[in-house]
Simulated scan of single mutants.
Amino acid sequence: MTGLEARQRWLDWLARERRASPHTLAAYGADLADFLGFLTRHQGAEPDLGAIAALRPADIRAFLAERATRDKVGNATRARQLAALRGFLRFLARHHGIEPLALAGLRGPRVVPPAPRPLTAEQAREVAGSVGSVEHTPLQAARDTALFTLLYGCGLRISEALGLDIRDAPRAGQGLKVRGKGNKERIVPVLPAVAQAVAAYVALRGNPPPEAPLFTGARGGRLDPAVAQKALRDYRRLAGLPENATPHALRHSFATHLLGAGGDLRSIQELLGHASLSTTQRYTTVDAVRLLETWQKAHPRAE
């Protein structure tokens, strides 16, 4: 079996067994193709299963060093590529009996996640309420208002929101079922403002079938994320909002504003659909004044 054939089997397994997203499959597939190309150049032939089994940590370090020096990729990209190689070699070990000796003692480059940049509460409300003003038709205006109100009101990723169908339309007083990363489901509460904005948009659609996409593009298909991102980009330039006013910033804002208002970190973790609490801590920032007030009220020696 060639390296390329092994790569395809691993990607098929990720899609079938792990339900990896198309973005993950594309990224890991490209990462592994880069590594196999590196081995082909340095070994003079396309690697087969035997050549992969003979790899040592020095081979992977050489690949990562080349990516850093020749291709100028950053730590985050190299860390992801190392994660892809780990997954690939462990897959071969489990399914084809190869000892993953190349992984012994390997440590990835240190990656410091950037601090999230949320909007202020006023900016987030302005985006949700006024972003539709840049559209040319009432339907598109109502769509964008509903979409960005949903992102801020429920803390969704844009992919989660655009994956909803008419049958999933949020309703006040009912939990919204969201399918997130890793195909995991969670239930988030729905604010009346969110339900009203979505209902107003759906009403303009007439009577779409339950299986139709909730958010559609100009041709009736599921709305492309790039179109939604452009709508917000156009609006923020007209409104003088900062460059960090993006769809994902509304998710940051949702978490940050809840935490700043006294929300419990564990509850916010559940609402965001994070697997670990440390991820939630990276997504949220704490107002230093609020933190000091909490300490003053709660600590027995604060007085």
Rank of each mutant, 00 (worst) to 15 (best):
V198D: 06
P210R: 11
P118N: 13
R117A: 12
A142F: 11
P209S: 08
H136M: 13
G155I: 02
P225F: 03
L139M: 14
G217I: 11
A200P: 07
N207K: 14
V194Q: 02
G175D: 12
V134A: 10
P225G: 05
K184N: 06
L232W: 01
V134D: 03
A146E: 09
L204G: 14
A231F: 05
A195Y: 04
G180T: 06
V127Q: 02
R205N: 02
A199M: 07
Q196L: 14
G220Y: 03
L241N: 04
A115P: 14
E160K: 04
L232T: 01
L147S: 09
C154Q: 08
R222W: 07
P189F: 10
S133D: 14
H136T: 15
L223W: 05
R236E: 01
A239I: 02
K230N: 12
A172K: 01
R125G: 12
A195R: 01
N183G: 10
A141S: 15
G173K: 00
Y152R: 08
I187E: 03
L176S: 01
D165I: 00
L156K: 04
G163W: 04
P213V: 10
E135Q: 15
F148C: 05
A142Y: 13
P242K: 06
Q174A: 13
V178M: 06
P242M: 09
A161D: 07
A199Q: 15
G132S: 11
L147Y: 09
T137V: 13
R117F: 04
